[in-house]
Design a protein around this nucleic acid. Structure first.
Lengths: 162, 162
DNA sequence: TATTGTTATACTCTATAACTATA
DNA sequence: TATAGTTATAGAGTATAACAATA
């Protein structure tokens, strides 16, 4: 397959031709991420000093109370030491707490503090509004469709016991 | 707006609930990128040792002969010193050449060597096939639609003289 | 034997600041 | 004054290896 080519086949900035990259999902994801990162930096990193990983961790922990580091590492496709480092920082900021698991004495259960919970919620609210405003070219239906298609791509991720 | 929620509202790996992140384009882009990165690593980084930025630079230069570093920096939303470093590496591998611009004595024009051109082309071929195979859940029409929606998101990027 | 989480360490990538040469 | 490109340097983020404790 080949999608329609047009004179608009230029990079959003710099005005370079990118016809050969047009059909590459990986490249187009990276270009789109430049836009969402700008929204993130304005709405969350600026006000709260939260890194994208930190925001994501807070939100996943909020929704999955007492989740373990190991499962978070798998969900985000990063290593365990990396999670340890971010959890250290979030704990130092008193946004979450570590508690020993009663059932498995190796495991550490993670739980947000009230402050962490509040910060995660307000960040989500600002992000949703920020993205909606910045990407007003997308209708509600188009946004929903985009999300579903991105889900399909994400689910194609190799699972494996890695 | 709120898109349909379901029991399938879990991270692809780790099986964590992610309902609050469901509608965030930035998060879903990151999750989708995990899948495309896996394809990239298998199809290009493994065989050719080319980093994603390197592949992108080669391809943009192939399509925009004698492009300048400054325009590439804008297109990829990175700094000029960063481009200098990658161009250094690509030049050391004899995949591209630097030539002084005749019209503007400050500028350096970039041009692929035959080897660089060959590598970029074959990488693109492998990536397109690799993505198509890995993301077979997407029909051709869905892939085309996804690309168009990602384009719309990318075009929402703040332009500015930065 | 495998897994959880941590520490110590090294590497990769990107950015900022300062400089030159030219426009 | 502004821009193109480079150098030098520092910072952010991630990974690998090795370990202790537990399953």
């Amino acid at each position: 397959m080949a999608t329609r080519r047009s004179a608009a086949d230029k990079t959003p900035a710099g005005q370079l031709t990118e016809a050969r990259l047009h059909d590459l999902i990986g490249y187009q994801l990276a270009q789109a991420a430049i836009a969402t990162t700008a929204v993130y930096n304005r709405e969350v990193f600026g006000p709260d000093g939260l890194r994208p990983v930190e925001y994501t961790l807070l939100t996943l922990i909020a929704e999955n109370p007492e989740v373990s580091s190991a499962r978070l590492a798998k969900a985000l496709a990063v290593t365990k030491p990396n999670i340890t480092m971010w959890v250290d920082r979030l704990e130092a900021r008193k946004l979450l707490q570590r508690r020993p698991s009663p059932s498995d004495k190796r495991a550490v259960l993670l739980k947000l503090t009230a402050a962490g919970s509040r910060m995660a919620s307000s960040a989500t609210r600002r992000l949703l509004k920020g993205e909606r405003d910045a990407m007003a070219v997308l209708s509600a239906a188009e946004r929903a469709l985009l999300i579903e298609l991105l889900h399909k791509v994400a689910r194609s991720r190799p699972q494996g016991p890695s």
